[in-house]
């Protein structure tokens, strides 16, 4: 086998793993859309806010310190202690649950029965509010996020495969990507078990199928919305942590939502496996295109090619690869 062959395999493996990272963001969209029909524009900002909260708690940062300082003339910045990662994760999750409750209490409750586009507009407002609130609460500086996950190429794999062909330097796979894939698999299995085998999960599915019917048998729509937004907050925390570990936690993290859109178009807005498979197809597709065709046309093809790939799928399956077929009686 030639080095080119192995490098192609390397590109495919890295594409799959990058796709899993896209899927982590897409999952949050799917959870909320499935349960409430709301396209949550704020999902990217939720990932940012969750990561900001995690790193702020880890570092013992005082929330709203610049605001407090400017009002009271104090000079506060940190509490002077740091929190273990696990404790910080649990607390950050608690903040996201509180956030879910507040979203239901102050936004969604007043929009029950409104047109989906109204709910979508509300999430746009929520996104901008959260971005400003996150800035006020934790500051706009870039924060290093270390949750103990290893980074850098996997040395064992690299040295074991080095020299398989002339000019081949061994497979490069980032340890962080391996961990992200593992965590994503556990997350998806957990979500599927939760929705299939728990009472709350079944209630979520009932609401997703027909919320009127679900309400008629006593399922509280409001409670379901809090639960589903909490789950989306949890997924946002995982996605924000993975992406934040790569680049530091900063406000451009909210833009990772752009990477989730072609995944959703391809995988469907209502399917958890669709988000995973869609992410992997997008990841591999864009990486292979960039590797094989990119150099001929000037490179930087990944952003637009992901959408072209998703649109191609839409021509044949408008509801996405795993989306539910829309049948409407007229």
């Amino acid at each position: 086998m030639s080095a080119d062959f192995y490098y192609t395999i390397e590109v495919i493996i890295n594409g799959l793993m990058t796709g899993v990272l896209y899927s982590l963001v897409a999952l949050g969209f799917v959870l909320i859309f499935k349960a409430s029909g709301v396209f949550n524009y704020a999902q990217g900002v939720m990932a940012l806010f969750a990561a900001l909260t995690l790193v702020g708690l880890q570092n013992g940062q005082i929330p709203f310190a610049p605001l407090i300082n400017s009002i009271f003339g104090t000079n506060l910045s940190t509490f002077g202690w740091t929190l273990p990662t696990v404790v910080a994760i649990v607390l950050a999750l608690g903040v996201m649950v509180l956030f879910a409750y507040l979203v239901e209490r102050y936004i969604l409750r007043y929009l029950v029965g409104q047109d989906p586009v109204i709910l979508f507009m509300a999430t746009i407002g929520l996104a901008y509010f959260m971005e400003g609130f996150g800035d006020l609460m934790w500051g706009a500086d870039i924060k290093k996020l270390d949750v103990g996950l290893p980074q850098g190429g996997n040395v064992w794999l690299e040295s074991a495969t080095e020299g398989w062909a002339e000019g081949f330097y061994g497979f490069y796979i980032d340890n962080l990507d391996i961990w992200a894939t593992f965590i994503a698999v556990v997350l998806v299995i957990g979500l599927m078990v939760f929705s299939q085998y728990t009472k709350t999960g079944r209630a979520l599915r009932a609401v997703a199928d027909d919320n009127q019917a679900a309400m008629s048998v006593g399922i509280s729509l409001r409670a379901i919305w809090v639960i589903v937004w909490s789950l989306a907050g949890f997924v946002a925390l995982v996605a924000g942590t993975m992406w934040g570990a790569k680049s530091g936690v900063q406000f451009s993290l909210s833009l990772i939502a752009l990477k989730a859109l072609p995944v959703l178009m391809l995988g469907g807005f209502t399917s958890i496996p669709g988000a995973i498979v869609g992410g992997m197809i997008i990841g591999v597709g864009e990486k292979l295109f960039e590797y094989s065709i990119g150099p001929m046309i000037g490179g930087a093809t990944e952003n637009w090619f992901a959408y072209v790939l998703a649109l191609l799928f839409l021509v044949f399956r408008p509801q996405g690869l795993f989306g539910e077929k829309i049948i409407e009686r007229v």
Binding site: N14, T18, Y169, K246, S247, S252, L255, G298, G299, A300
Partner: peptide, 21 residues
Amino acid sequence: TLLPVDHPGQEQKSQWLQIRR
């Protein structure tokens, strides 16, 4: 060698795999 990175640059795996190659 020219290696463009699309805005915002959060994902650069392709470019760095090329540099490694």
